[in-house]
Design a protein around this nucleic acid. Structure first.
Length: 680
DNA sequence: GGCAAGCTAAACAGGG
DNA sequence: CCCCTGTTTAGCTTGC
């Protein structure tokens, strides 16, 4: 029967569009925002309670209620503002790069849908920074308005109380006024505490010389990413009393502290990093960074001054000398709203980066713990965890820069656009071969579970025009084993290739020929005549025997090698294998144990939901092929005549394949049987 | 350098 | 005759 070309049928299939879906699916930011708002409300409530202690209950309750109302109004207003960044009321904050408007709007329109971390993962650093900046600008504006409201309400309250107090004893009135004043004071204190916390994180260090400048309208200056290092350096000017600056800002922005947390995008949670405050309140992280990045700074210079220009974010004003710069700094970057907002923006940036760093560090710790590596070792960063493609990048894929500089964590499934030359995580240099045939594909060379790899990077391969780092044989086998019946027709194999890999949606003549060639060439692929035609199955035993073991006959050698591989003694090639295989192989607990062959015994069939890449029998292989699963996926062939394959190929040594009876029992037989077979 | 593995290309045959 | 499927051979590259 004629079957239409697989490539044509598959080409029209919708490619995976998962970027937005994954975003919406992860929507979880509402909880965080709500929690922050609750915290802010709690602060207000505490303040009100403090007033209560002075006597009158009803005014305090009323004030509390009004505070809550004001908070709600402020929140709603912020959300409204966020949903329309270009609204007329935000003219002052529109000077940011227009290129980031779209993502910023997207992110701001759904503040309760995305956590800051998620937003950060979505946005690029410049976008994120612009977002943060605008968010901070909005936040500051809202805080000011809210503060004004609060003050107006308090004054109204005072007036009303005074009006009502005319019929009350003077003591009561005095108590009420005192309560309001105390509440104001508490708000200020809360704000100071908040800023102090930030200061302790090293995120705020305003110069005391910057007296409260005139209240400018709004922050607006765009902070270009290149200015970040300068801000890093400048955020903790030496010799600046932190408390002074905090107090100054606290007084300058009185009343904002209680609500600041409700508007701040990231929760004020210090990442589980080394946030050990130094005696001056600066975290060691920042100090070390400054040390490493301020090499050009001389003791007499200013961290915000370099190369003759002001390094304040978005400024770049040329200053001939330090004195002029200081003058400029005091005039242009005084402690006003804009500077404060810029500092806050930088705080947010730093926080985001720290959160991200914390996450990545945590992931690294988990990975290293999983790999039984010492977490303290700096080695992993030098290991080719995500090696640059370098000379081995596939010819059709040009990877100019690492799109995921933070390692192998970013799932390509979420970001990979169709035909995007992204490198799948965990696929290293040997994966994307340079030009010509892609040989030594990782699955075969290192026996990485192709199913795991595919499961992890399924979307990537589906969308990116990247040649999968697997041999044709591995792919064919995987295609066959993924089916319930463990059998596929040739055309179905074609379909699987085109469905799973964007790369195979073209060059059909080449790879189809190769598929046919492999099916015929390798004895592990068994052609079975079916009612509907011929189907291809996999003979796992033959698949294992496909590669003659190089270390056959020396169990001790193998054992030593296995021991050598354990723990930190991974050799370079195996590390490369790890890099290429995304470590799924190490899911086997026995992999890194200096252990017996029994510990290397097969992974579960159900691993990763699909048959794992089989591991060779012990004593037979190169390092990655250490485990001897040797389970056979001898399939249930829907065949009437069972003799079709036998005449063409000799049956597997296990005996006549009775497809209807094969299954776990055969797996057990294989495990018992094959070691000797391989070691013979 | 030899060998094995893998890829590509091509020729060929058989069947629908 | 064309296309698909399947087999086989050859040449080449790469890694060990």
């Amino acid at each position: 029967m004629m079957v239409e070309s697989a490539s044509e049928t598959i080409r029209s299939a919708p490619s995976g569009q998962n970027g937005v879906g994954s975003l919406s699916g992860q929507a979880d930011g509402g909880g965080g925002a709500g929690a922050a708002g609750t915290a802010a409300g709690g602060a207000g409530r505490d303040a009100a309670t403090g007033a209560d202690s002075n006597g009158e209950m009803s005014p305090a309750e009323l004030l509390h209620f009004q505070q809550q109302q004001a908070l709600q109004v402020a929140r709603q207003f912020l959300l409204q503002q966020a949903s329309g960044l270009s609204s007329p009321g935000n003219n002052d904050s529109k000077q940011s790069a227009s290129a980031v408007q779209v993502p910023v709007s997207v992110a701001m329109m759904s503040p309760q849908m995305l956590t800051p971390q998620q937003v950060q993962q979505i946005l690029s650093p410049p976008q994120l920074q612009a977002l943060l900046q605008q968010q901070q600008a909005l936040m500051l504006q809202q805080l000011q308005e809210y503060y004004k409201k609060q003050q107006e309400q308090l004054h109204l309250q005072l007036l009303s109380q005074q009006q009502a107090g005319k019929q009350q004893p003077k003591e009561a009135l005095g108590n009420k006024q005192l309560a309001f004043q105390q509440q104001l004071l508490q708000m200020q204190q809360l704000q100071q505490q908040h800023l102090l916390n930030l200061q302790r994180q090293g995120l705020v260090s305003l110069q005391p010389s910057q007296a409260s400048g005139p209240l400018q309208t709004l922050p607006q200056a765009a902070v270009c990413p290149s200015d970040l290092p300068q801000l890093w350096k400048g955020e903790s000017a030496p010799g600046q009393p932190a408390e002074d600056s905090v107090k100054q800002e606290g007084l300058d922005l009185t009343g904002t502290a209680a609500t600041a947390t409700s508007f701040a995008a990231p929760p004020k949670v210090s990442p589980p990093l080394s946030h050990h405050p130094l005696p001056n309140g600066q975290p060691t992280v920042l100090t070390s960074r400054r040390d490493s990045s301020s090499h050009e700074e001389t003791p007499g210079s200013h961290p915000l001054y370099g190369h003759g220009e002001c390094k304040w974010p978005g400024c770049e004003t040329l200053c001939e000398d330090l004195g002029q710069f200081i003058k400029h700094l005091n005039t242009e970057h005084a402690l006003d709203d804009r500077s404060t907002a810029q500092c806050r923006v930088q705080m947010q940036v730093v926080q985001q980066l720290e959160i991200q760093l914390a996450k990545e560090s945590e992931r690294l710790q988990a990975m290293m713990a999983h790999l039984h590596m010492r977490p303290s070792e700096p080695k992993p960063f030098s290991q080719p965890l995500n090696p640059a493609p370098g000379s081995s990048s596939f010819s059709k894929v040009t990877v100019s820069a690492d799109p995921f500089p933070d390692g192998l964590v970013h799932p390509p499934t979420s970001a990979a656009a169709p035909v995007t030359p992204l490198r799948p995580p965990g696929l290293g240099s040997a994966s994307l071969h340079s030009g010509g045939p892609a040989r030594r594909r990782s699955s075969d060379k290192f026996c990485s579970p192709i199913s795991s790899e595919l499961a992890q990077n399924h979307e990537f391969y589906k969308n990116a025009d990247v040649r999968p780092p697997f041999t044709y044989a591995s792919l064919i086998r995987q295609a066959i084993l993924e089916t319930p019946d463990r059998q596929l027709t040739l055309n179905e194999i074609y379909n699987w290739f085109t469905r799973m890999f964007a790369y195979f949606r073209r060059n059909t003549a080449t790879w189809k020929n190769a598929v046919r060639h492999n099916l015929s060439l390798h004895k592990c692929f068994v052609r079975v005549e079916n009612v509907k035609g011929a189907v291809w199955t996999v003979d796992e035993r033959e698949y294992q025997k496909r590669r003659p073991p190089k270390m056959t006959g020396s169990p001790t050698l193998v054992k030593n090698m296995i021991s050598g591989l354990s723990y930190g003694a991974l050799n370079a090639s195996y590390q490369a294998a790890l890099a290429e295989s995304s470590f799924p192989l190490l899911n086997s607990p026995g992999m890194l144990n200096p252990g017996s062959a029994s510990s290397l015994l097969p992974l579960s069939h159900d691993d990763v939901g699909a048959p794992v890449e089989p591991l060779p029998s012990n004593g037979s292989s190169s390092p990655p092929r250490l485990s001897p699963p040797q389970y056979s996926h001898q399939v249930q062939v829907k065949e009437e005549p069972a003799e079709a394959e036998e005449d063409r190929r000799p049956g597997p040594p296990l005996g006549p394949p009775n497809p209807s009876t094969v299954g776990p029992p055969e797996d057990r037989d294989l495990e018992e049987e094959l070691p000797g077979e391989e070691l013979s």
